[in-house]
């Protein structure tokens, strides 16, 4: 392309569909920056596309592998709680872009839940992009002001004896919650267990799924 502009999805020379909306201020800025970086030969469109594809290929199934291994291998779990980045690397998973990874363990007596009140810090290499609600002012406000009520509203009713710890991820640390292993899963293999580990359970706003009845 030598015509100096970027074609975004749905924009062709012969438009077949009308764009859904005018570009917002930030979208325009992204397009302008991308064009400048291309013109100066710093990046290519292909590199941008590949970066987006890599980003979108990351899903919570990666984090679920980590959790399922921790549930089935006590030595791995000990290493994970001690030095999470090193333990995750053992599974061949990348934590590039995370400066410091911490895996807090949910137990009978402590329940962790993660928020980023300043922006949207999130363990993206292991969970993908955060859900919209995670970035909403409503979630942020409710979880830091009354986490017990907020969790109840999201379907997690905790015993009064369980201490809730809200982790406000403001800096270089990213948190991946290790949910409790559901009862009745003793017979299950690691790969089957991974299917019970949801995104929300690794943020701490849900428990892991109950196994299907046998």
């Amino acid at each position: 392309m030598s015509d100096g502009h970027v074609h975004t999805a749905g924009q062709a020379h012969q438009p077949i569909a009308k764009d859904e909306h005018e570009l917002t201020y930030f979208e325009k800025r992204v397009v302008a920056l991308t064009n400048l970086l291309r013109e100066k030969g710093i990046i290519t469109i292909d590199e941008v596309r590949r970066a987006v594809e890599e980003m979108e290929a990351r899903t919570p199934t990666l984090g679920a592998k980590v959790v399922a291994r921790a549930w089935t291998d006590p030595a791995f779990k000990a290493r994970l709680l001690g030095d999470a980045k090193a333990a995750v690397a053992e599974l061949g998973l990348s934590t590039d872009g995370i400066n410091h990874l911490v895996v807090p363990e949910n137990t009978e007596s402590v329940h962790h839940v993660v928020v980023c009140t300043l922006c949207s810090c999130y363990p993206r290499p292991l969970l993908g992009e955060p859900p919209d609600w995670y970035k909403s002012a409503g979630y942020k406000n409710q979880i830091i002001s009354n986490p017990r009520a907020a969790l109840k509203e999201m379907g997690v009713e905790l015993d009064e004896k369980v201490e809730i710890r809200v982790l406000d991820s403001t800096a270089d640390v990213r948190y991946l919650v290790l949910p409790r292993r559901p009862p009745g899963t003793e017979h299950m293999r690691e790969e089957q267990l991974a299917g019970l580990v949801t995104r929300d359970s690794m943020i701490g706003v849900a428990e892991a799924l109950a196994p299907a009845p046998r």
Binding site: N146, P147, R148, E163, I164, R165, V166, L167, A171
Partner: peptide, 19 residues
Amino acid sequence: LSQLWSDPSLKDILQMDIY
């Protein structure tokens, strides 16, 4: 949280990363 929000009915904890 009870100290953060001056509400003694809150029993839980908030942990934050601070430089």
